[in-house]
């Protein structure tokens, strides 16, 4: 695999097309690739399908894309802090699929890991079960969580080397290592880019094979 290309946020945003599915790391705007989100707001792509555990806030985090009406389909877990998401859900301008949080992450992980789905107990006996296939294995019922693939993954890490090996910062790691695995194009916004060999191999969380582009946080 080639080393990731180092580009700026504007160039990164142009890799996203109208209608693309975006897998975005963030947890209530902590560990959000904010610079990439802001660049997308500027380029103005429409009809985006966003996959994230929460659309964060209207003015901070992923929620800016919803506030600017760039998102028409959201697969998420919880949108309690995003007024734009709640309004879009209410008036039907944003189609929203609510997932159990762990289930959503497993769906993305399955896609990145080449699996056909995950059998999960979460949601049995709740409205989630009615929206899913169930499978019985050795007499026990499971919910089939199908993989979610992305066109583009947008993630945030603390530091990259020039092979794209990544380390994260504290709870800003959150969903980023998972989202990094399942996009056709994976763009990492990082605070620092160092030479190959400068990160202890034992400390690397996301190996560089997953990363196509690096954007240095400005």
């Amino acid at each position: 695999m080639a080393k990731p290309k180092i580009i700026n946020a504007n160039e990164a945003a142009k890799l996203v097309k109208d209608g693309d599915t975006l897998l975005i790391g963030s947890f209530l705007a902590i560990g959000c690739p904010q610079q990439l989100i802001d660049a997308l707001v500027t380029t103005g792509q429409k009809n985006l399908h966003v996959v994230c555990i929460s659309p964060d806030y209207d003015d901070y985090g992923i929620g800016k894309l919803l506030f600017h009406k760039q998102v028409t389909y959201l697969q998420t877990s919880w949108h309690g802090f995003s007024k734009a998401s709640q309004a879009g859900f209410h008036d039907g301008s944003i189609k929203i699929e609510f997932n159990p949080q762990g289930g959503l992450l497993e769906r993305v992980r399955a896609a990145g890991a080449g699996l056909g789905g995950i059998l999960s107990p979460v949601g049995l006996g709740t409205p989630v079960e009615k929206e899913r296939e169930t499978i019985t294995v050795d007499g026990k019922k499971w919910i089939l969580e199908k993989p979610i693939h992305g066109d583009v993954s947008l993630i945030k890490a603390k530091k990259a080397d020039k092979m794209g090996n990544l380390i994260y910062s504290k709870s800003a790691r959150n969903c980023n290592p998972i989202m990094a695995t399942a996009g056709k194009i994976v763009i990492a916004q990082v605070d620092e880019i160092v030479e190959i060999g400068e990160i202890d191999p034992e400390h690397i969380i996301t190996p560089g094979v997953f990363i196509d582009y690096l954007v240095l946080n400005k």
């Binding site: 877990s77 919880w78 709640q86």
Partner: peptide, 14 residues
């Protein structure tokens, strides 16, 4: 009131 599921269902199941 539809804020979403969050981690609650996972916690209930696990």
């Amino acid at each position: 009131f539809v804020p979403g599921i969050g981690g609650a269902m996972d916690l209930c199941a696990g």
